[in-house]
């Protein structure tokens, strides 16, 4: 059953600053970008890009190792440490984290938070364990959903495998088990540049008492305005920033013009 929460977004003190998050999809130590999870293009060096986005005013950096394998784990940990040493803003790491030990390894390497995706679906108890062991504040559960007819269905394994989970049931379970935030990617929007799925975001945030980050589909500043107006707590993009179509500060200026409170740095 969905818990209904009172929403009073008009009250200034009921909202944190709307966060603009830049995602670095990393494969083999390089930032890459794919379309609908397929076909990768090289976008640059992770440390350089992370610092560049911090300068532009990004509120958080998410680092997703999309080709995480055990063989290149050491490289991934080294890259995480290099990024973490240099960043003065929160830094979330995901991709290929399958166990409590994996999480500890990446937190020790300098990540402020970890993002679990397939592992949380395969072993939901892991959410409880990590939340209990390290605190809910350092656990983001990433959810890839695809719109199938009128239903939102949860996918895992980088969007390759459909599960039987219905998105809203899964959001509730994630929250109940103690995650701190949800990173919600609309696969049907990812790489399309047509904006976030704000219908999904409005429904998800209205029923959640943890924060939900919108992901998938952004290509301009207006898309950020729209998703924050729909209720998203934070919004994430990758390609539009990597392709230098627009800077984070330009997005934030547009948000301010629309009376959406952002961090000014």
């Amino acid at each position: 059953m969905l818990r209904l929460k009172k929403k009073s977004k008009n009250r200034l003190n009921d909202r944190l600053k709307s966060r603009v998050i830049v995602c670095l999809d990393v494969a083999n130590g390089r930032v890459v970008k794919g379309v609908n999870f397929k076909g990768l293009t090289d976008m640059g060096d992770p440390v350089e890009l992370a610092l560049n986005y911090q300068e532009q005013g990004a509120d958080e950096i998410v680092f997703l190792d999309i080709k995480a394998t055990l063989e290149n784990r050491k490289n991934a940990l080294d890259t995480v440490t290099q990024v973490a040493k240099n960043l003065s803003i929160p830094f979330t790491v995901g991709g290929g984290l399958n166990s409590y030990e994996d999480v500890k390894m990446f937190l020790d390497a300098g990540a402020d938070k970890v993002a679990l995706n397939s592992a949380a679906v395969n072993n939901p108890e892991l959410i409880n364990q990590i939340s209990k062991g390290f605190g809910s504040q350092c656990l983001v559960v990433a959810v890839d959903v695809n719109k199938v007819g009128e239903e939102y269905q949860v996918y895992i394994n980088g969007g390759h495998s459909k599960t039987n989970l219905k998105a809203f049931d899964w959001f509730n379970e994630i929250e109940t088990r103690g995650a701190g935030e949800i990173l919600l990617t609309a696969m049907h929007k990812d790489g399309t540049g047509t904006g976030f799925d704000n219908e999904l975001m409005a429904q998800a945030t209205a029923n959640a008492s943890i924060q939900i980050i919108a992901s998938g589909g952004a290509s301009n500043a207006q898309h950020f305005v729209e998703t924050f107006k729909a209720g998203s707590d934070a919004a994430l993009a990758a390609g539009m920033f990597h392709r230098v179509e627009i800077t984070v500060s330009q997005v934030k200026n547009e948000l301010m013009r629309n009376n959406i409170e952002v961090r000014i740095c």
Binding site: L16, K17, I89, S136, A234, I264
Partner: peptide, 27 residues
């Protein structure tokens, strides 16, 4: 409204070195 509080807020202070500064909370 949402828990845990994870994010940025502006400080309200009579000191100019703090007032209006955006800082990150996790609590």
């Amino acid at each position: 409204p949402k828990q845990p509080m994870v994010g940025w807020c502006s400080l309200q202070s009579s000191s100019s070195s703090l007032n209006g500064k955006s800082v990150y909370f996790v609590n």
